[in-house]
Simulated scan of single mutants.
Amino acid sequence: MRIARDTTHPTSRTERVRRYAVSAIAVAAAAAAGSRAVEPNTEWYRSLRLPAWQPPPWAFGAVWTPLYASLAFAGGHASGRIQGRDRQRFLASLGTNLALNAGWNWLFFRLRNPWAALVGTVLLDVSNVQLIRRTTRSDRTAARALWPYAAWCLFATGLNASIAHRNPSRA
Rank of each mutant, 00 (worst) to 15 (best):
Q130A: 13
L100P: 02
G120N: 01
G76L: 01
Y149P: 10
R134E: 14
Y149K: 06
V27E: 08
P66A: 05
R170G: 11
A52V: 13
T121Q: 11
W106A: 07
R170M: 13
A4M: 13
R133H: 12
A30N: 00
S169F: 11
W53H: 12
D139F: 03
A33H: 01
R137S: 12
A142V: 02
V22C: 08
W115M: 13
A102W: 01
A116Q: 03
V27F: 05
T135Y: 09
T42A: 11
V63P: 05
G61I: 01
R81L: 10
L100M: 12
A99M: 06
S162A: 15
L98E: 01
G120Q: 06
W147K: 10
F155L: 05
P51G: 05
Q54H: 14
L111P: 04
A31K: 04
R81Q: 15
V17S: 10
A24D: 00
A161N: 02
S79D: 08
S138Y: 12
F109I: 07
P114I: 00
R112A: 06
N105V: 01
T65L: 12
T141K: 12
R81D: 05
P114S: 04
P10I: 09
R36V: 12
R140F: 03
N101W: 00
R19E: 08
L131M: 02
